[in-house]
Design a protein around this nucleic acid. Structure first.
Length: 494
RNA sequence: GGGCGGCUAGCUCAACGGUAGAGCAGUGGCCUUUUAAGCCAUUGGUUCAGGGUUCGAAUCCCUGGCCGCCUACCA
């Protein structure tokens, strides 16, 4: 018999998995059992319960566990099953003789994915696995849709992102990666809090999107009837707090840039910015190395990270410090790079496949070489220092070479992980730099920020850390989409 | 934005111009320590959508949609 009758007397198509489950749900309710009203006790997690059975013992104490049914192996009058909770999985043994015929028949109607609670004593099977000998169980949530195929799991990238919950249920690797992300962020908070930093929250919706060069998302503020922007950086607000006397502040928050999306970029991403008064970019070097190495120690368990492609990144010890200009000279093989004319630099770029346009200014040509030939090759941790002043208007100039600024960009894994500056606190110099950068684009200068600087901002080191990229690095993930639970996607069309 | 690839059963995938299939899941049986349990039987399809070529299209062509990879801008 392949067809049954449902409660309306209509034929039930047994290949319509949802219809079959709806029928089971209807039958349950008809018998007075509402599986969505039930709750159950989870006295211990699956993994904790397994640990309660001593290594050499055959029998152990009673446990109460709850979770989602992940495998069912029915063998006549006895069955094995596994449930999964936030900690992992534990095996269950259902035996008709022990729970009675009625309960056993009920167990046989359960579907993969159903959420149940069970209790009973632990024992060890003949293959050595910790198992609950179920004495009582209850269905607490009936599922109407099936899980993805149990062996291959979800393979469709789109479904992994759109229905992340299915990915989390079926992929331990994915589950672990997001648990890791959470631990990374809380460890960073702990580290900064212990050093007297104060976590703050500054506006996401702002009238001027400053602090970085990027296209913002635009929105409309109805009550004020004007255009607002989603922030592209945290910098300006946080520096105002330095002026206000909170001289060790940080924020971990979402930032939005209306740009493309690829393996390294999601339009909304999590940025941490830290500002420490009476410090400078060298202080930030110590701070970031301390954070990363503590993460290795407390969260990752190793300071040798194996990337998705097998490359090993060594985060231990002191990190290489290299001057921007030396790296460019090295990458071009031209010790006299900076003595070349604009035309000669341009020609070299064209000849060597670095994409540039004739509009590029001198420093932009050099920076194109840096971005295409240097940054992506810095796999091992490297502080790149002394960048050209034109690139970074918000940093202080180096006293012994005013064409450069007191900054570093920490590059690891071929990506910029954290830029840091000795923050510019001369309001007059700051205005000049911002106006120079704005140039003909007539970008709005943030006057509020300049006013704040005129009230006096203490000398400070500041740093931005791309949390997503840091998580990519530490978890060895291949893409930013693998460390963001719900990455930006085009809406599905109906 | 540009280039390449993908879209077939609930899931993972075959079939590449000639009757749309397998494994898992489901359904009905057998099975009291299994490990992707096993065995027997069985259900399940607008082959992404729309046009076209053809006696005949999942397959070839065109248009569109979505996704992935590479590439460009930003971190």
């Amino acid at each position: 018999m392949s067809e049954q009758q449902n409660e309306n007397g209509q034929e039930l198509n047994t290949s319509d998995l949802r219809a079959v489950r709806l029928k089971k749900l209807g039958d349950l309710r008809a018998s007075g059992y509402d599986p969505f009203k039930k709750n159950t006790e989870q006295a211990e997690t699956a993994v904790a319960a397994r640990a309660m059975l001593p290594a050499e013992s055959h029998d152990g104490p009673e446990v109460k566990v709850a979770g989602r049914l992940m495998t069912i192996r029915l063998m006549g009058k006895a069955s094995f099953a596994k449930i999964q909770d936030r900690s992992g999985q534990i095996q269950l043994y259902f035996k008709q003789q022990e729970i009675g015929e009625e309960a056993y028949n009920f167990f046989k109607t359960l579907d993969m994915g159903d959420i149940i609670g069970v209790e009973g004593p632990l024992f060890r099977t003949k293959t050595g696995e910790e198992t609950v000998r179920v004495k009582k169980f209850e269905l607490v949530t009936k599922t109407l849709r099936p899980l993805p195929e149990k062996w291959h799991g979800l393979a469709d990238q789109e479904q992994i992102y759109r229905q992340r919950y299915l990915d989390l249920i079926t992929s331990e690797e994915s589950r672990k990666r997001f648990q890791m992300r959470s631990k990374i962020v809380s460890c960073i908070r702990r580290h900064l809090d212990e050093q007297g930093f104060m976590e703050v929250e500054t506006p996401v919706l702002i009238a001027e999107a400053g602090g970085a060069a990027a296209r913002p998302f635009i929105t409309h503020f109805n009550a004020l009837d004007c255009e607002f922007y989603l922030r592209i950086a945290l910098e300006l607000s946080l520096k105002k707090l330095l002026v206000g006397g909170f001289d060790r502040v940080y924020e971990i928050g979402r930032t939005f840039r209306n740009e493309g999306l690829d393996r390294r970029h999601n339009p909304e991403f999590t940025m941490m910015e830290v500002y420490q008064a009476y410090s400078d970019y060298k202080g930030m070097m110590k701070l970031i190395r301390g954070i990363v190495q503590r993460l290795c120690d407390e969260v990752i368990g190793t300071d040798k990270i194996t990337r998705y492609d097998g490359t090993v990144i060594d985060l231990s010890g002191e990190w290489r410090v290299a001057k921007y200009r030396d790296l460019v000279r090295e990458a071009t093989g031209l010790p006299n790079w900076f003595e070349l004319s604009v035309k000669e630099k341009y020609d070299w770029c064209v000849a060597n496949g670095v994409e540039v346009t004739p509009k590029h200014e001198d420093f932009e040509l050099t920076n194109a070489v840096y971005e295409k030939r240097v940054e992506c090759n810095l796999i091992q941790p490297t502080f790149v220092t002394l960048l050209p002043a034109e690139l970074i208007p918000l940093a202080k100039r180096c006293p012994d070479d005013p064409t450069t600024v007191e900054v570093f960009e920490l590059c690891i894994n071929g990506q910029e992980i954290a830029p840091a500056y000795s923050e510019q606190n001369d309001p007059l110099e700051q205005r000049r730099a911002l106006e120079a950068q704005a140039g003909e684009e007539k970008q709005n200068i943030d006057e509020d920020f300049l006013t704040a600087l005129e009230h006096g901002m203490p000398p400070a080191g500041g740093m931005g850390v791309g949390i997503d990229r840091l998580v990519i690095l530490l978890t060895g993930a291949a893409s930013i989409r693998d460390v963001i639970l719900f990455p930006s996607m085009r809406p599905e069309k109906k």
